[in-house]
Design a protein around this nucleic acid. Structure first.
Lengths: 189, 189
DNA sequence: GAGCTAAGTCAACAGCTGATTACATAGACC
DNA sequence: GGTCTATGTAATCAGCTGTTGACTTAGCTC
């Protein structure tokens, strides 16, 4: 991967590189199928550094997951509500394609109690409360979580299972249907 | 299937019990976090029987996954289209709650190439073609896969992540919103 | 350039996992 | 009752995994 700092020894840069590799492999394979040796190899360092810098493999994953999801959260706070379905879809699919960790993508991958709990908290902050408060009306939290579930389902079926039509569709087509499905959620009646 | 006499030695019954335990643990923990010893312990037999009856752990999982999904497929073929969103949702959530393997639930759990490929084929048969043909119109396959994605996303967020509002909602509330979201998919304009 | 500290490597560990082999026995058949 | 085979167990193997501690070395300070 790209090594921005040309310095041979740079603890901060190495730490960050390990986090990025962890996010990438976590999204691609999941926690249990990613070994510390895999992560270290992607960065080009020795696996022992993971324990030196993070204490354990799980702590590395926890920190890697905590770093994700911020962009969706910001989008929900700032974007006009009618643009949210398309915006969230784009953000999640982009995060998935570029290998960045996203709570939505990880949802389909993780089977670790600690990481699952972190994702649950992030979803609650971002959707149940964050989007729910903006939506208002009956079942605001439920409606917000349903929008999240739709986008998560699309990401999982595209990236993990490889559903044909979902993969073949270009983004605008996909966004068109997502907008239509989301309309009943955005209305607060 | 009929469970005959409580014989102490019954290869067919033992084989079936191993398949059931495999489906249960596969849905609960995923493939990599389920060991042959776990599966055998749930049945109460020695782990060596897995290799005797199925050749390998992976072959057991493949056979276990192939057995699931039939009920959704039948539903799609026989139920009136307007009842499908609620029906599929119920079927997937029931399968998830009872620990039966369902392609939708497994989608959130599996990180094994062979199993993923089987699920992809099942989704294609059941939704892309099965439901797509019934829907007709533009993007029929895509619209069918989007309904699947919605239900999969709901199942994953409920069972794997534990999203609060999705778990707290009773089925009728959930079904109400799913129906509303699915309306734009069922129409063929 | 000598010395020190942080950054990184190396080798080995203990535990777990899937698989294999040799062995034990229930239960049908004669 | 004796025998034979399918059914099941126990012990073990080889490979992988996360973690650890001892060692090496780059690069700054004086």
């Amino acid at each position: 991967m790209a090594q921005p700092a040309p310095r041979r020894r740079d603890a901060a840069a190495t730490r960050e590189a390990l986090l990025q590799a962890a996010r990438h492999l976590l999204a691609e394979r999941g926690a249990t199928q990613t070994t510390t040796r895999d992560i270290a190899a992607e960065v080009g360092v020795n696996q022992a550094l993971i324990n030196r810098y993070f204490g354990s493999k799980e702590s590395l994953f926890v920190e890697a997951v905590r770093g994700g999801g911020a962009s969706v959260s910001e989008l929900i706070a700032t974007s006009p509500i009618e643009h949210l379905p398309e915006g969230i879809l784009r953000e999640v699919l982009d995060a998935s394609a570029s290998g960045r960790g996203s709570s939505a993508l990880l949802a389909g991958v993780v089977n670790n109690d600690t990481i699952t709990e972190i994702i649950r908290e992030m979803v609650e902050d971002t959707f149940t409360r964050g989007l729910g408060d903006r939506l208002g009306g009956d079942d605001a939290g439920l409606r917000a979580e349903l929008l999240n579930a739709l986008v998560v389902g699309i990401a999982v079926m595209r990236e993990k299972i490889g559903s044909q039509a979902l993969r073949a569709a270009d983004f605008d087509d996909l966004a068109k249907y997502v907008r239509r499905m989301a309309v009943p959620l955005l209305a607060d009646d």
